[in-house]
């Protein structure tokens, strides 16, 4: 798989932003804590243990939940009319315009370099118990996958089925989903790198690190 790294970098440099729509996760009464145009920060610290800027408080059943920003960026499209109102689940509250950083650019570009194994259905995905044990953060890059390997469980319509991997053999380089998350059909699940392409991937990462200025 050949990519034009120059073109990709140029594309991201011309528009290095992603808009994240912030929706309430569940019902409740909203109290806004930010203003239009305000800069906010995402979680920080070595383990991302310090929460980001408080965006709003959602109170349900007498329990206030502080909803903090998961992204660093600027508040836009703030819906001030929702202040103090009971809202239904999924109601959009604001947008945060986030400037992509170096690691995120690497992540986006790697999707073009790696073989991406995508979700065959809109479903919840889990690693099989054996694979889940074998894969942890530190060892993931050493995990080999061959066609026919049953690495994932697809939980669809309350039924679990084993998914046999049908891509090229390679090393599991990136996991794009969280255990048990609902994944849209076609969204990436795994990023696989053929062993002979590992040096190329490392080179791409190195070049982005050198050329991208946060």
């Amino acid at each position: 798989m050949d990519i034009n790294l120059n073109d990709l970098l140029r594309k991201y440099k011309s528009h290095p932003y992603e808009d994240h729509q912030i929706k309430v996760p569940h019902t409740g009464t909203v109290r806004l804590h930010v203003k239009e145009g305000q800069d906010v920060t995402g979680p920080s610290g070595q383990w991302r243990h310090r929460p980001g800027t408080l965006l709003y408080v959602l109170e349900r059943e007498g329990n206030p939940k502080r909803m903090t920003s998961k992204y660093t960026g600027t508040v836009a499209e703030l819906r001030t009319e929702l202040e103090g109102c009971f809202v239904q689940a999924g109601e959009p509250v604001m947008v945060i315009r986030h400037r992509l950083n170096k690691e995120e650019i690497i992540d986006r570009i790697l999707r073009e370099v790696l073989y991406v194994y995508a979700a065959p259905q809109r479903a919840r995905y889990f690693f099989t118990p054996e694979v889940a044990v074998a894969i942890d953060k530190d060892r993931a890059k050493a995990f080999n996958i061959r066609p026919g390997d049953e690495v994932l469980i697809m939980s669809l319509m309350k039924r679990d089925s084993l998914l046999a991997y049908d891509g090229p053999e390679g090393v599991l380089y990136k996991v794009y989903f969280k255990h048990g998350d609902l994944i849209e059909q076609g969204a990436p699940l795994l990023g696989i790198c053929a062993p002979d392409r590992l040096p190329f991937v490392e080179k791409v990462i190195q070049r982005i690190r050198t050329e991208w200025d946060d």
């Binding site: 569940h26 019902t27 239904q88 689940a89």
Partner: peptide, 10 residues
């Protein structure tokens, strides 16, 4: 609209 039929708080 709620987040989940299985969330009692909803």
């Amino acid at each position: 609209k709620i987040s989940n039929y299985k969330d009692p708080n909803e």
